[in-house]
């Protein structure tokens, strides 16, 4: 049986949001802007980058320090359940493999031949793999622990009074927690040089992705699967030259589309198929005549 998630000590939610906002501002507008991690990335051929280092530090300070230690939570309460790791890894690998098969087929159909993607063909595999490592062990892992593992359930436990409309409590928690997830990306988008309009549009998109990740977490009850989807969405690590529609952001959309298909649509179809063969109803007059 899964034990109920504990509520964090009062004040932990606010402390978490404030500390993260301060740290992420310093990281993006000072460390990233000054290129502090470029030497390390160059030295390791791109395998170790700033994303990995920064997010490991953020995970240590915010998840371990604020959520677990100051908030009196167990690792379990933020979704860190070690025995789920194997399924998470296998799901991520399966997702990536299916995506590569689609890229392979799309590339062959579009280009007339199978070729490696530009990043791998140009000998930049270290950078591509480093980006994925930075996501899996850094950014995606930290953000999932923090925003899907910690913030969503803790905010849900704080919002009482669902009454006859439990969906309202759920929707409010979902929107507030994932809006905060989007808002903490503002320093990063400023660092990337986006205009105000672009940042606004990007925040709406980030909220949407946050909602999708939360739904994936609630449905699978396995945070490692969501880490995998999130990491591949941010760093699709496409092995083959693909069709133009599936390049760039198209490769991220493919990952998210496959995740929705695999986690939601296919199981729903299987359930429908199984229920399809349930018994036909007994006619209303049958009981009266037989009894």
């Amino acid at each position: 049986m899964n034990a109920p998630i504990r509520p964090a000590r009062r004040g932990t939610l606010l402390l978490f949001v404030i500390v993260h906002a301060v740290l992420i501002t310093v990281v993006n507008l000072w460390l990233f802007a000054s290129g502090a991690f470029h030497p390390l990335a160059q030295m390791t051929g791109g395998l170790v980058n700033g994303t990995l280092i920064v997010n490991l530090v953020l995970a240590a300070i915010l998840v371990w320090g604020v959520c677990l230690k100051l908030g009196f939570l167990r690792a379990y309460d933020v979704g860190w359940i070690p025995h789920q790791l194997g399924i998470g890894l296998m799901t991520t690998l399966a997702l990536w493999t299916v995506a590569q098969l689609i890229h392979l087929a799309a590339g062959a159909a579009s280009n007339g031949s199978v070729a490696l993607s530009p990043a791998f063909a140009a000998g930049q595999s270290g950078v591509a793999i480093g980006a994925l490592i930075g996501q899996i062990f850094g950014n995606a892992l930290f953000e999932e622990l923090a925003y899907r593992g910690f913030l969503f359930p803790q905010l849900y436990l704080r919002l009482h009074g669902s009454g006859e409309r439990p969906w309202l409590r759920f929707v409010l928690t979902l929107l507030i927690s994932q809006a905060i997830f989007a808002l903490v990306h503002i320093p990063n988008r400023l660092y990337m040089g986006l205009s105000a309009g672009e940042i606004a549009a990007d925040l709406a998109l980030l909220t949407l992705w946050g909602v999708l990740f939360t739904l994936l977490y609630l449905h699978t009850d396995n945070l490692f699967i969501v880490v995998g989807v999130h990491a591949l969405g941010n760093a699709p690590t496409t092995l083959f030259a693909t069709a133009p529609a599936l390049a760039g952001s198209g490769s991220s959309l493919l990952i998210y589309g496959l995740a929705v298909l695999g986690v939601f649509a296919v199981p729903a179809l299987l359930r429908w198929w199984r229920l399809r063969v349930l018994v036909e109803p007994l006619p209303p007059e049958a009981w009266a005549s037989e009894n």
């Binding site: 998210y256 986690v263 729903a268």
Partner: peptide, 13 residues
């Protein structure tokens, strides 16, 4: 595209 995916997740999930 994201809205379609989230909508699909909400409907079938």
């Amino acid at each position: 595209c994201g809205a379609v995916l989230v909508g699909a997740a909400l409907i079938v999930g």
